[in-house]
């Protein structure tokens, strides 16, 4: 690789707990994103996330080490129940959070009006992928960065970069789900709880695992069998979109929506940086410190290598991926099923 002048991207890393946040910062994160222990963020799992006091301490820890903290308030409040979201915005802004990640236009509007100096990022949950949609959020709410849905090629991102007045953040690693992000109602259909409003995809309270004597594993969500894994077969998350089903016209169980694979764009890092991506995002607030440490360290090393004009050699992260398979998804090219 020839040395070329690339702008240093921000490595944006997940944290589900204060210990994970410290781990991410220590492993080389430029910014860490996290959420409160309620429905205001899209990883509302039991035992996960931050109390206000924990967030305040986490911000101090990160700032002392030159890292930023971004607060995800990226779900959609049900009608007439916006107080929780407003409170989250107020607390974050009061603590001096570096940016708040929003999806709902009402929440964005509240943040922009109540805290005009507060930096806002547009969540992937907003599903904004066109110059017109992104431009609207920038114009109306002063959004400074958009987290792009995982449905664009690198070439399309490059084209978009020329047409929008804000920074671009792109996912580079982690779970990859339905392409119309922020609009998935599969969990809602199966459980009555909403990914987008309650902040939980496949709520653990409605997940059941069962292994028979031959170690065949059955996973259920809300009474629906999502998948059956033979003994020795890699398992996936108990999400409707990654399950196998009997479909008309096909023999045997079939991944009717998506296959359990994980996004890994380590090989495309130079292309993304040339395309104008300002921030590289790692998915996985629901994952452990071990995941955070390994993935963040690997991407820190890879990004630094690219900036130094070397090829981005990245340690194998396959063991951490769902289904033990990796994909470049739509980023490399759209080979739709």
């Amino acid at each position: 690789m020839t040395a070329e002048k690339l702008t240093r991207p921000e490595l944006v890393c997940p944290a589900g707990t204060p210990a994970s946040l410290r781990t991410a910062v220590d492993a080389g994160a430029d910014a860490v994103y996290c959420g409160f222990q309620n429905a205001t963020n899209a990883r509302n799992f039991p035992g996960l996330n931050f109390t206000p006091a924990e967030l305040q301490a986490a911000i101090a820890y990160a700032h002392d080490r030159g890292a930023k903290v971004l607060l995800a308030v990226n779900t959609f409040p049900p009608a007439g129940q916006t107080d929780l979201w407003k409170e989250a915005i107020d607390i974050g802004a009061g603590f001096g959070i570096d940016a708040i990640i929003v999806a709902d236009i009402g929440v964005a509007d509240y943040a922009a009006r109540r805290h005009p100096g507060q930096r806002l990022h547009l969540s992937v949950q907003a599903g904004a992928a066109s110059p017109e949609a992104i431009g609207f959020y920038c114009r109306e709410f002063g959004v400074k960065r958009v987290v792009l849905p995982r449905m664009l090629t690198v070439a399309e991102i490059s084209g978009l970069h020329q047409q929008i007045p804000c920074e671009i953040e792109a996912f580079v690693f982690g779970n990859i789900g339905m392409m119309a992000e922020g609009r998935c109602s599969l969990t809602n259909y199966a459980t009555g709880l909403s990914t987008n409003m309650d902040g939980v995809c496949s709520p653990a309270s409605q997940v059941q695992y069962e292994e028979d004597a031959e170690r065949n594993l059955t996973t259920r969500l809300g009474g629906f069998v999502v998948d059956r894994f033979a003994c020795g077969e890699s398992a996936g998350y108990p999400t409707i979109c990654k399950g196998r089903y009997h479909v008309v016209g096909r023999t045997g169980a079939y991944h009717a929506f998506e296959e359990p694979v994980s996004l890994n764009l380590s090989a495309l890092l130079p292309d993304l940086m040339r395309a104008g991506v300002t921030a590289l995002k790692i998915e996985g607030r629901q994952r452990s410190r071990a995941y955070v440490r390994n993935v963040v360290a690997a991407f820190r090393k890879a990004v630094d290598a690219v900036l130094a004009g070397r090829d981005p050699e990245i340690a194998s992260l396959l063991a951490l991926t769902e289904g033990h398979r990796e994909t470049q998804g739509a980023f490399q090219g759209k080979t739709w099923r």
Partner: peptide
Amino acid sequence: DGDALFFSRDLMITGDTEAVVALRNALDD
């Protein structure tokens, strides 16, 4: 990582999944 261990079938949970997720997250902190 607990999720990776689940994917590889090295870790199995049954019963109250929500309680296990809460315990896992609490211990991981």
